[in-house]
Nucleic acid binder design. Structure first.
Lengths: 202, 202
DNA sequence: TTCGGAACTGCAACGTGTTTCTATTATGAC
DNA sequence: GTCATAATAGAAACACGTTGCAGTTCCGAA
């Protein structure tokens, strides 16, 4: 078994990049309609107009597939938000702003979020590469928020900032899991996240 | 499908309590030997000397089974530790003491931890009841540590303490997941947890 | 243009979680 | 002790992730 998904850069031909795109599109469409369970490999293959074997060539498991979809979603969002600095006067305000946006975005599509979150949480060591990509995106998003105007692309954040960003993303993930599994309402989730940010950023 | 596991209190006859115990014993033995994948329902049934259908009567899914096993483990540990107050002069010291103990305990049996942690994170809404039990156990453990000598059984902790306990358990869970999935070493895990505690408790 | 290898298709098969069904056994009311 | 009911055993069947394979198509090098 291959252990890594084919990333966009690996793929030489335009046809291949297009296949990859179709597969991820199908994944997100199915996830959005019925959540984790609805993302069935045969269904993804069919909807992406690709053979099952090919799907497995691009993404060696359902988890790889979903985590890669998450990475792409994240990337798209980051691209859209662009380089605009995060509004807010204090790190705490900015982080809460960013998380509130992100959380609201996810809560707008509960099924999709459920699928992506559960895949992320279930991922084992073979998905380390893909997970790492998502982790980086999350960290950079939070660091931008913490720094605000002062943020400079590529600059090393301090150890303290890294630690803070990690705690926040841990809390955010747990909160998302609680929400996804119906153990917390959207309001409780938001509130919990904001409390935690207040606790860590002061 | 039933949505809840049979808890020890539900079970009238001694034979039934014993079946339940055998099932959980088998689960833990298999998990300890080969992790999540080794906990196969047929194998659990056979080792517990119970028919597959009976196993499903007691625990409606593999996830229910594993989360219930986690709850029992937690309970046993809490019972053993007993009412002894947690050593340490500050909340931070006490919490770190408790977490270090717990983490070390789990890292001593990586397979078992992997199985239980992944089940916990993968659980969906139908496992809410069982998850809630574990959440309570975790919270009460942390609150005891935060309060130290001042802890009184059954007393309501302040909102602030609840928030702190929750942030810590979120971080702890995420760290455990990172460790279990091979994304972090035991040392990194311990260090990350302690950094987070230092950040939140001050 | 031709050729060789990689990529793709279509399909069958396997493993494991889950469901279902029938026959058998234990349990509790009377 | 007898009977009704629930619980259990045993085994087959289903669903879906995953693997394997034979045949076909695509693509770059010569």
């Amino acid at each position: 078994m291959t252990t890594n998904s084919l990333t966009a850069e690996d793929l030489g031909s335009a046809a291949q990049r297009d296949r990859r795109r179709r597969i991820l599109d199908a994944t997100i469409a199915l996830a959005s309609k019925g959540g984790f369970d609805a993302v069935q490999m045969r269904a993804v293959a069919e909807q992406a107009d690709v053979a099952l074997g090919t799907l497995y060539r691009y993404f060696p498991s359902k988890i790889h597939l979903l985590v890669s979809a998450l990475a792409r979603q994240f990337e798209d969002t980051q691209t859209m938000v662009g380089r605009r600095p995060v509004p807010g006067d204090t790190p705490s305000e900015r982080v809460i702003y960013v998380l509130r946006r992100a959380t609201r975005g996810m809560q707008g599509d509960a099924n999709l979020t459920e699928a992506l979150t559960r895949a992320f949480m279930f991922a084992d060591a073979t998905v380390a590469t893909e997970i790492h990509v998502v982790g980086m995106q999350m960290t950079s998003m939070l660091n931008r928020a913490i720094k605000g105007e002062a943020y400079v692309e590529g600059e090393q954040p301090s150890d303290q900032d890294v630690a803070i960003a990690r705690v926040i993303s841990d809390v955010w993930l747990s909160a998302l899991v609680s929400w996804v599994t119906g153990r917390a309402t959207a309001e409780e989730t938001a509130e919990h996240i904001e409390t935690a940010v207040g606790l860590v950023l002061r």
